[in-house]
Computed example of a mutant assay.
Amino acid sequence: MKLLVAIAVAEYRERLEQFFSHQNVKSYNMFDVTGVIKPDKAPHRAGNWFGSNAPTIQNVAFFTVVSEEQAKNILKELDHCKQEMPDCNINAHILNIEDML
């Protein structure tokens, strides 16, 4: 089994849910995330990096446990999406699960 973690700009939520549907992923966890964009000229000190004046973006994050085949196919669909739409802002990561109850 694999742990799939995906993060996307909120506008791509439905597209990512379509990938899950195509691969028969029956359940997943989803939560809203506020992303912080580090300004190019910001000082290197962490206190200024996370300041209230830093620009933010609304993201959505998913995680689910899938089979190896489902994980590979979701990544293939994501790769196709990124080729089709170079600005496609979905990132996915697959982690091996050693043990599970």
Rank of each mutant, 00 (worst) to 15 (best):
I37Q: 03
A8G: 11
Q83M: 06
V9H: 14
K41I: 03
D32A: 11
V33P: 10
T64C: 10
Y28T: 10
S21T: 12
A8Y: 02
M85I: 14
E11P: 04
A54K: 14
N91G: 01
E68W: 04
M100A: 09
P43K: 13
P55T: 03
A42W: 00
Y28D: 02
V5Y: 11
V66E: 06
F20V: 03
K82T: 10
E84R: 14
K2A: 02
V60C: 05
H22K: 14
A92R: 11
V33N: 09
I37R: 06
M30C: 14
L95D: 05
A6W: 02
K38I: 15
I57R: 15
G51A: 13
T56M: 02
E77G: 09
N91P: 00
V66T: 03
V33Q: 02
G51V: 01
R45S: 04
L78A: 07
I7T: 09
V9T: 13
L3V: 12
M30G: 06
A54R: 15
G47N: 12
F62H: 01
V65T: 14
V25F: 02
E77N: 05
H22N: 08
V60W: 05
M85F: 11
I7N: 05
A92P: 12
K26D: 04
K26P: 00
F63W: 04
F31C: 13
F50H: 00
A46T: 13
Q58T: 10
C88G: 00
N53P: 03
D32R: 15
L3S: 07
I90N: 01
W49C: 05
K2C: 09
L4Q: 00
Q70M: 07
E84G: 05
K2I: 08
A61M: 15
V66S: 06
W49H: 09
T64R: 05
D40H: 10
S67R: 07
R45W: 02
G35Q: 06
V66W: 04
M1E: 04
H80V: 13
R45V: 06
E98N: 13
V36I: 12
Q23H: 05
D40T: 09
K72S: 10
F31P: 03
V60K: 07
P39K: 12
N48G: 11
A61T: 14
K76T: 09
H80C: 07
V33E: 04
T56V: 13
D99I: 11
A92C: 15
I97M: 07
F20P: 00
L3E: 08
V5E: 05
Q23L: 09
S52R: 12
